[in-house]
Design a protein around this nucleic acid. Structure first.
Length: 260
DNA sequence: ATGTCGTAACGTTTACGA
């Protein structure tokens, strides 16, 4: 089962680039972020025509997550537990049946948090606390699970081309990285790093200042696996080539192949 | 070079978020 995370930065502007990549990469599941669309406006036809089931959790203008899946989506839930008054659409879950085992899918768009300090950074850290609580519950469940999405966290210096440029940024502040480690330390595996321990692998390049041309990137899109899911890990990759195409997202897909 | 995108709205331009 090939599972990808992809921050598409607006479905209206990206559905052609997205379907072109789907046709090439043939993922079974895509966890999408920043659909920037309400549920009713998200186009189902181009995906259903390719055999994907679609589940969305959107809002007007910003944020929004979705799951595209060739496998039937069961038990879909929307919204990260822990704050019923949070209006931001950043979390969606579903269960799919593999050949042998069920798998829980969690798609997330973690708050950016800039500028830090400030209310946006406070919201990021509070959201990460709620994520930790949900992650701990997933760990306690026997069903294997993957939490994948745009974490807006640069975990380590080797995850940035120029780490010194990010020292004051909400994506790399010590408190951000500590909150991320606290989740990892529950026992999750950063799927991409298993087979790629070396630096120089990025999933985001800013539109500004020629970041792509200079390969001035950061790795902030992650697939975290519970131990039962990590046991099934076969291969991972980053499809960086599509960043150089016409009208690209500023992120590229990161994927993992699981044998289950 | 404060450099680019995508989206929304009292829209042919500005504001916001990233």
């Amino acid at each position: 089962m090939k599972i990808a995370t992809f921050n598409i930065n607006g479905i209206k502007a990206r559905h052609h680039a997205l379907t072109a990549w789907l046709d090439e990469a043939q993922p079974d599941v895509v966890l999408c972020q920043e659909i920037k669309s309400v549920d009713d406006a998200f186009p189902h036809e181009p995906f259903e025509a390719r055999g994907y089931n679609v589940a969305t959790h959107g809002q007007k203008g910003f944020n929004g997550v979705a799951i595209l899946s060739k496998l039937t989506l069961e038990s879909v839930t929307r919204g990260l537990p822990g704050d019923d008054d949070d209006p931001q659409a950043r979390w969606i879950e579903a269960i799919v049946m593999g050949k042998r085992d069920a798998l829980r899918l969690c798609g997330l768009y973690l708050p950016n948090g800039n500028p830090a300090p400030g209310p946006k950074y406070d919201y990021k850290l509070a959201w990460m606390d709620r994520l930790h609580a949900r992650a701990r519950a997933l760990m306690a469940d026997e069903m294997p699970a993957v939490m994948a999405g745009d974490y807006n966290v640069i975990p380590q210096p080797e995850d940035a081309a120029r780490p010194e440029a990010w020292t004051e940024d909400a994506l790399y502040l010590p408190q951000t990285r500590a909150a991320y480690r606290r989740i990892l330390n529950l026992g999750f595996t950063d799927a991409f790093r298993v087979g790629h321990p070396n630096p120089g692998h990025y999933s985001f390049w800013d539109y500004q200042a020629g970041a792509w041309e200079k390969d001035n990137g950061i790795r902030i899109d992650h697939l975290l696996l519970t131990p039962a899911a990590a046991d099934c890990l076969v291969d991972t990759g980053i499809d960086r080539g599509i960043r150089g195409r016409e009208k690209p997202s500023d992120h590229v897909p990161v994927w993992a192949e699981l044998d289950l």
